[in-house]
Design a protein around this nucleic acid. Structure first.
Length: 883
RNA sequence: GGGCACAUAGCUCAGUUGGUUAGAGCGCUGCCCUCACAUGGCAGAGGUCGAAGGUUCGAAUCCUUCUGUGCCCACCA
């Protein structure tokens, strides 16, 4: 046996095994008709990214179940890959360009996209390498990217199919516009945050009577430059007579009419609303209803345009101040009140988005939502925890059309061409040519002068195909037939709308089947103050740093065991995992040092049946098999932190603290060796999904050359080895030992001092247990320092006797503060007496006797009896102290 | 404005369908470097289970209301 360090050396071990796993291609999955498939597609991380705690958590969860299923005989495919992440990645590269003093327009589209591919090549796999460091057992050979050639083909086909079905359309609507990213966003990509703003009350004078006016209230005064009406509620008496009158829009001197519309809430503000059809979704609708003029006052970068008169060239917020100032001077600003309202922000750059009128491509969602809604309602697709079902349903039931075109360059170019024509263009040519392949000429006029749509598709328009496009769709493949539908999906709550819901819709629309049956929604990783981890807050803990400092197993284990709904984490929290890995390491060192004579064919289950095993062996076998069963059940129910607690408790509190201590003087016994070794080995398997590195390393020391533990079967559960009786007896023994230790500690008996106890015990059973296990006890109590007197059976009161015996062995003076001890005891007596009161009255309660289950009543009675006994005992101690 | 969740020890969380004395880890206190492990061992202190009502023989657990916190959704400008 080589010298092994008393510290688990994760630094060399982690790398050794992740390299080994990959080199041996251990996690490659292929269709195997003899086995059941278990498939997970990874939520593809963005190619911008480096691993953060959210990834670490997300992928640890997936790896646990994948490794567990693999050991349970499934053909497991964990499909890895990355997402091109349109806007996010483009932003990163644009920032890089800015550092060089350039921008994308100078570079031109082609060169810019080439640059993005360079970026992808250089940094795209960073996160994949980091996932390997985490121990993720993906089928790396299959790694996909959302802009791979075959994947792009799938995206194009989907667009064309939806267009032909009438589910993709182009139109001019108010969309969320990010003035910094220069692109449209979907409703989901605009994050609403409460902002402390102001409600400005502005006077709009009548054209005919400039001294009279209507006051409107707005949070965005700059948009008044685009006003083309003022609206009031038709039922509002205040304004009834004014409907149809003409006002003079201040600053612009444009004539605008007062219109009436049900939309207006008379209770809000002044009850009169300025209508800006080109800059507000509600006003847009009103504009259409009333045939108003749509005046767009903004450039795409949110500077005001030529429609803004004097304010042309100003930024929207700058203009707001200027306009308010001017209105104030003109005495047209009635008042300004503070007002909190939700303002949309770009989910990528956090700039305030602008409701902006523009021509975009949309997906009609209602028809797609129907089967997706049914799948969840019927329970075919289940959310864990269940409550997310409601969130999903609610969104789906109120689904709105999806704006899918983006005015950026990084992404799937929209497969649409427009005919520029050759000068003799007909009306037909206004229809776009939607095609999977590049069309050579216009099908209407034959012109070859075609221009492709400049826009690209929303990143999520490719992500929503992930569960089947990664398996080869639209080609019919063996993989697709075998691995689809996938089994489970793991993601964060904020991704439900972006991705989960849309994958379900796409699954039904294009595969005619659900994409996965279980959706596990995990919490967000936060700091201990409950704030989201982010670079800008400076509270982020870098998982790679944790891997360096504590090891990947520690990162994984600690993250999971600390996970409630959300995970509040600080650096010290990772010590649990590190310490546990180290404990496993040292326990196995002890076992490996002492099990030279292990019989490789030893069958634990058989031995338990035929051999006459002692109590500690029966007990530890029972504990192991009880734990094993519960761990498996917990994993199946996605209760990971529960599973880890069970493992931690078994391995540390049972196996190490008691079993290994008890057998310390019996290593020469071959049965003991075999039990210890086998239990270690099976524990390793049970722990492997959670801590792959340390278990693989120890496994390799147990079985040199026997192959990776990751491909070994999960330990067979033997229910018959779960032995309630042995557990109870051992528990009694443990509590007796603990109380003796308690006394030693309490009376401050030094380790080298002898304690002689007359242990009287209430039941003969306990006493015989003690006598049967005297050697064991001595061993645990530091050999020879405890003697158990056979007279114990005659002694009536244990605690008092112990006091007396301690008095005999250790000089009492200086050890016991008699007065204080007496008070303490008296306090305890009071406490116990109080406890009897409740019990007494309950047992005298006729209702209780009548209605409560019998066993409960019996137990209560026994309890009362034992409390009375305890009181008597305590009283004796007090009297012995008083002597 | 609507919805969801949470509130248990100083901190982070368990607590299954109501049923003995509400658990664990970290932290804290005391004693131990004992030949696997001080990233360790043993022992201990610490909780009127957010508040008030109600149902019940019995409530941390079920119901109602309230307070506080977090998250999501929403076109009241």
């Amino acid at each position: 046996m080589p010298e092994l360090s008393n510290r688990f050396d994760f630094k060399t071990v982690d790398d050794k095994w992740s390299t080994y796993w990959e080199r041996e291609n251990l996690f490659h999955a292929r269709p195997d008709p003899k086995k059941k498939p278990y498939t997970i597609v990874i939520p593809p991380p963005n190619v911008t990214g480096i691993l953060h705690m959210g990834h670490a958590l997300n992928n640890t969860l997936q790896d646990i179940i994948i490794r567990y299923k693999r050991m349970n005989g499934y053909e497991t495919l964990w499909m890895p890959g990355t997402d091109h992440a349109g806007i996010a990645t483009q932003n990163v590269v644009e920032k890089q360009l800015a550092l060089e003093g350039k921008n994308r327009h100078e570079l031109g589209r082609e060169a810019f996209v080439a640059r993005l591919w360079d970026w992808k090549k250089q940094y795209g796999d960073t996160i994949i390498h980091q996932l390997k460091k985490l121990g993720a057992s993906c089928d790396w050979q299959r790694a996909r990217f959302t802009m791979d050639e075959p994947y792009s083909a799938a995206v194009k086909q989907v667009f064309v199919r939806l267009y032909r079905k009438g589910l993709v359309y182009r139109g001019e609507y108010i969309i969320n516009w990010c003035p910094r990213c220069h692109t449209a966003l979907s409703d989901e990509e605009a994050e609403h945050r409460d902002i402390q703003g102001s409600l400005y009350h502005i006077r709009y004078p009548f054209k005919d009577d400039p001294d009279r006016y209507v006051t409107v209230a707005t949070t965005r005064p700059e948009t008044m430059l685009g006003d083309t009406a003022v609206a009031v509620n038709p039922k509002d008496k205040r304004y009834k007579n004014l409907i149809g009158k003409t006002l003079l829009l201040p600053l612009m001197n444009r004539e605008i009419r007062i219109i009436s519309d049900e939309f207006v809430d008379p209770k809000f503000g002044t009850g009169a609303v300025k209508v800006t059809p080109a800059h507000d979704p509600n006003d847009f609708e009103m504009g259409k209803r009333h045939n108003l003029e749509f005046v767009n006052i903004m450039h795409p970068d949110a500077r005001l345009n030529e429609q803004a008169g004097d304010y042309e060239g100003m930024d929207r917020l700058e203009a707001r101040e200027a306009i308010v100032e001017t209105l104030k001077e003109a005495k047209l600003l009635e008042k300004t009140e503070p007002h909190v309202h939700a303002v949309g922000h770009c989910y990528r750059c956090h700039t305030i988005v602008e409701p902006y009128l523009s021509k975009q491509w949309f997906v009609k969602m209602k028809p797609l939502a129907e089967p997706a809604l049914r799948a969840v309602k019927s329970g075919k697709i289940r959310f864990y925890p269940k409550r997310w079902t409601k969130v999903y349903m609610n969104w789906m039931e109120n689904i709105r059309d999806w704006c899918i075109s983006r005015q950026i360059w990084w992404g799937h170019r929209i497969p649409v061409w427009y005919c520029i024509g050759d000068g003799h263009c007909t009306m037909h040519c206004k229809e776009p040519i939607v095609s999977e392949t590049v069309p050579e000429k216009c099908p209407h006029c034959g012109s070859a002068n075609l221009r492709q749509d400049e826009d690209v598709l929303d990143t999520w328009f490719s992500s929503w195909l992930w569960p089947f496009a990664t398996l080869g769709w639209p080609q019919k493949s063996e993989d697709l037939a075998y691995f689809y539908p996938t089994s489970s999906l793991f993601t964060a709550p904020e991704i439900i709308f972006f991705w989960v819901a849309r994958m379900i819709m796409a699954g039904y629309e294009f595969m005619g089947d659900l994409p996965f049956s279980d959706v596990y929604i995990h919490g967000t990783v936060r700091d201990t103050k409950g704030r989201k981890m982010s670079k800008s807050l400076g509270n982020a803990i870098d998982p790679l740093e944790i891997i360096e400092e504590y090891g990947a197993d520690a990162l994984r284990f600690s993250l999971i065991i600390n996970s409630g709904q959300d995970i509040f984490i600080s650096k010290e929290k990772f010590e649990v995992g590190r310490n546990f890995a180290n404990k496993m390491w040292n326990a196995s060192r002890l076992i490996l040092m002492n099990t030279a004579a292990v019989d490789p064919s030893f069958d634990l289950a058989a031995a338990a049946k035929t051999k006459d095993l002692d109590l500690p062996s029966l007990w530890i076998l029972s504990r192991f098999h009880a734990t094993l069963g519960k761990v498996g059940a917990a994993i199946e129910k996605y209760q990971y932190s529960e599973a880890e607690s069970l493992i931690y408790d078994f391995f540390w509190a049972n196996f190490c603290d008691w079993y290994l201590e008890i057998i310390k003087d019996r290593w020469s016994d071959p049965v003991t060796q075999n039990i210890a070794f086998t239990l270690l080995e099976q524990s390793l398997k049970m722990i492997h999904p959670f801590m792959p590195f340390v278990t693989e390393e120890i496994w390799s020391q147990c079985h040199a050359g026997a192959g990776s533990i990751s491909r070994k079967p999960w330990p067979a559960g033997h229910k018959q080895l779960v032995n309630k009786k042995a557990e109870e007896r051992m528990q009694t023994l443990i509590s007796l030992i603990s109380s003796i230790r308690n006394l030693r500690s309490h009376w401050n008996v030094k380790p080298n001092e002898k304690i002689q106890c007359h242990l009287s015990s209430k039941s003969k059973d306990q006493l015989s247990l003690l006598q049967d296990n005297e050697t064991l006890l001595k061993n645990l109590m530091r050999a020879d320092l405890l003697t158990i007197d056979g007279r114990a059976a005659e002694t009536k009161n244990s605690a008092a006797t112990i006091v007396e015996d301690i008095k005999a062995v250790v000089p009492l003076s200086g050890l016991i503060d008699v007065g204080r001890e007496r008070d303490r005891m008296l306090g305890q007596i009071e406490e116990q007496k109080r406890a009897t009161k409740g019990l007494d009255s309950r047992l005298k309660n006729r209702e209780f006797i009548k209605k409560a289950p019998k066993d409960i009543i019996e137990k209560e009675k026994e309890r009362l009896k034992s409390i009375h006994e305890k009181i008597r005992e305590l009283e004796q101690i007090v009297s012995s102290l008083e002597q």
